[in-house]
């Protein structure tokens, strides 16, 4: 009996077929380009899904950074494939713009948080012109300020005894 026809050989056969079918004449440089672009596409898509689904503004922002990472990987793959510096130069400027964007956007996130008391993007669903009717997709639960616990630092050591007179004296006039 021909051993190839045994059903148990099927997975091995399939994997071998796949390997030979995929590993045909592509040059290593082209293969590296393909794989780099694939990784970039997957990272970009994961970031997109994160932005679309998550409601915490900081996690949404992390997802945006994930998309930037995907684009960076794609650009560097192209740069390597063509053997020039264009892609890498673009990635350097992507890094710069990402740093600026992070600074400004985190300030906005903090301002939004201090206005609503939560990091929820849905807290801004009623943002509109004064003349337009309000649309509420999803009613937000009220903030239970008694139950909200802010993180605290554990007290360490003993509080030193303050010398009140020394506090009143000025070292420099």
């Amino acid at each position: 009996m021909n051993p190839v026809t045994t059903p148990f050989m099927f997975p091995v056969l399939a994997v071998e077929n796949a390997a030979t079918a995929v590993a045909t004449v592509v040059s290593p440089a082209m293969g590296m380009l393909h794989n780099g672009l694939l990784v970039g596409a997957i990272l970009f898509t994961l970031g997109l899904v994160g932005i679309l689904t998550r409601r915490n503004m900081i996690v949404m922002f992390l997802s945006a950074e994930l998309m930037l990472q995907g684009v960076s990987v794609s650009l560097v793959s192209w740069s390597r494939f063509h053997g020039d510096w264009g892609g890498q130069m673009l990635v350097i400027f992507v890094l710069t713009v990402a740093a600026c964007e992070a600074a400004v956007a985190l300030v906005f996130v903090l301002q939004a948080f201090s206005r609503t008391g939560r990091l929820d993007a849905n807290a801004w669903q009623s943002l509109r012109e004064a003349v337009l009717p309000q649309t509420i997709d999803q009613a937000l639960p009220p903030i239970d300020s008694a139950a909200t616990q802010w993180p605290t630092l554990t007290p360490a050591g003993v509080e030193p005894v303050r010398d009140e007179e020394a506090l009143l004296e000025r070292e420099h006039v």
Binding site: V15, A18, A19, V22, A23, V26, P28, M30, G31, M32, H34, N35, L38, I42
Partner: peptide, 9 residues
């Protein structure tokens, strides 16, 4: 995805 990637050098 790993199986569909191209082989490298």
């Amino acid at each position: 995805f790993a199986l569909a990637g191209r082989r490298l050098g």
